[in-house]
Amino acid sequence: MKKTIVVLLLFGFAICAFKEIRGIYFRYPSYWPKPIYNFNKNQLTTEKTFLGRVLFYDPILSKDSNISCASCHSQHTAFSQINHSYSKGINHQIGKRNAPALINLAWNSSFMWDGAVNNLEMQALAPMSNPTEMNETIGHVADKMKHTTIYPKLFYKAFGDSAINGERVLKCITQFMLSLVSCHSKYDSVMEKQAKFTQQEERGYLLFKKNCSSCHKEPLFTNDKFENDGLPINKTLNDVGRMLITHDSANYLQFRVPTLRNIQISYPYMHDGRFSNLVQVLNHYTKGIVRSNSLAKPLLKPILLTNNDKKNLIAFLSTLSDTTFITEKQYSFPVFVN
């Protein structure tokens, strides 16, 4: 009898432990650097991450309840929006920059194309308040949520009481965004010696390491910095990038170096989505660089690629696509019983 009880208890503990781990998708390969995000002040739990996921998919965050985060960051394109250079906000308004793919955000030290946001927890405020995106205030969103039947329950489950405030909303959305880790691409399998590149991919990888990896640093494929990638300024937008934030001309036309993970499935490209395919992007780097004082140093020397080189390079870049990431159920539209 005693034995049975002990076994049952152990089994129970095992189930509890399993549930806790299963819900939280924050795992990354051992050879990756440590995340930058400070988890101590916002410890991940299944309930908070789930609440964040519900918020991510809920248009309640926008003024007219038409736009959710997922409107411009959809899972099947690695949380970017394909075919749209600029995303649509409420009242059919159009922004100035391309919606970036949301991938491995725990390793970013700043957010937005110009680094305007200094902490992932504050990031959601930017699209929420932008008049051309969601045009809402966090205070009003919290008020609206208090008058629903579902949110007080979800906050109760996550925090032990049903109070809804800005801090809690932001921390939960952050937990969901942190969970968006893409680490199951073919590239990752090759690095972990569970797969091999094809000959073409291998050639592309060598070209990548020679020409691209100083800014798109492995294994996250970004150096987490701002660079001027030599694009001519779009005169209809006059977007000076990082200089908007620092008022320093050294930052003229600098934008965040984006990750290249899932790059093939998250077109169009560049901060303003001006290129619709990777060939156009590579053509820019080989013959479109506009020189200026703030041009990224690695681009001072011309990049030379034959047509064949470009094909090989694109073959390598396609090994960064992560099917697990774009089909993972824990990231998808939350279906739950109210």
Binding site: K41, N119, M122, L125, A126, G139, G166, E167, L170, K171
Partner: peptide, 22 residues
């Protein structure tokens, strides 16, 4: 200013936080 979301008087709900730039 760089420590993320906080509560009480520091809650961004109070309207004393810039949203487009942290």
């Amino acid at each position: 200013n760089v420590s993320g979301a906080m509560g009480g008087d520091l809650d961004p709900m109070k309207g004393m936080y810039w949203t487009w730039q942290s």
